[in-house]
């Protein structure tokens, strides 16, 4: 049996007496569409931070295609294909939309080490960045400073940058958060159109989005996996309802 694309074993993170992740086991395979849900403070973003290397776990392992990447920093994991977007936009605010995406493509292709040839002479990088912008219907904004875009379109740039790193695993941290519903469908359509070669883990509060998108769901409560499985099973699970109705008293 081949190793799964991403495997997380017993992932634990403590800040002093506070356990923000407790022995999480998790798997993601190529083409998976997985949603991570849970109440506020359940440790969803912490989990993403542990997978991507922003945080080092207190115990446990992260394996990418069977290879232990727990000791690698964030940048090294990105280069291996574990890529994320942020709940709050992390853009290069003063630069143009094109330059924002160029940045990620140039890093992935190694062009960013070139300190002599002009950036524009790397046509393959510009071309790929523009293809991504076209795919996300951002081409008209290519030369605008990204901070001049409306928030919904900035969210698209956030995703375009991540795609520029050509992820094997894409972790989307509330991709449609703060986007007016008139625009959020663009983001959701785009996520649905993502290649089957990419495994996607989405953190989302909006249950409509979760059930539309996910083929598997993991429920995180107080840093631990409460349950997981197919959407209909999770939806039927009384414990999940308890958590969402606020009847359970966790942490």
């Amino acid at each position: 049996m081949t190793a799964p694309l991403l495997e997380v074993r017993g992932l634990t993170k403590s800040f002093g007496a506070l356990d923000v992740a407790r022995g999480i086991d998790f798997r993601l395979g190529t083409g998976d569409r997985h949603a991570l849900i849970g109440p506020n403070g359940a440790g969803k973003t912490t989990f993403v931070n542990l997978i991507t290397g922003v945080l080092r776990p207190s115990a446990g392992q992260v394996l990418l295609q069977g290879e232990d990447v727990t000791a690698l920093d964030q940048a090294a994991r990105t280069r291996r294909g574990i890529v994320r977007t942020f709940q709050i936009n992390q853009l290069f605010a003063g630069l143009t939309v094109l330059e924002n995406v160029y940045m990620a493509v140039a890093e992935r292709r190694g062009a960013a080490n070139d300190l002599w040839r002009p950036a524009g002479a790397h046509r393959e990088v510009t071309g790929e960045a523009l293809d991504l912008l076209e795919k996300l219907r951002l081409q008209d904004d290519a030369l605008k400073p990204v901070h001049e875009l409306p928030y919904g379109r900035q969210r698209l740039v956030e995703i375009a940058i991540a795609l520029g790193s050509r992820p094997k695993i894409l972790l989307l941290d509330e991709p449609a958060a703060g986007v007016p519903s008139a625009e959020s469908h663009i983001i959701l359509d785009m996520i649905e159109d993502l290649s089957d070669e990419i495994a996607v883990l989405i953190i989302e509060h909006d249950m409509d989005v979760v059930f539309r998108f996910a083929r598997q769901i993991t429920v995180l409560v107080s840093g631990a996996v409460l349950t997981g499985g197919a959407p209909e099973d999770v939806a039927a699970d009384p414990r999940v309802r308890d958590v969402y109705l606020g009847e359970a008293r966790h942490g």
């Binding site: 990105t78 853009l91 605010a93 630069l95 330059e99 940045m103 990620a104 070139d114």
Partner: peptide, 29 residues
């Protein structure tokens, strides 16, 4: 001037604008 307009120079602007994102796109900051 060459350095500034190169992809390397572009990545420096990225570090200035948002170092956190540079880590996230795999840049050896």
């Amino acid at each position: 001037r060459r350095i500034v307009y190169s992809p390397f120079g572009q990545s420096l602007s990225g570090i200035r604008e948002n170092v956190g994102r540079m880590h996230a796109i795999g840049s050896p900051v």
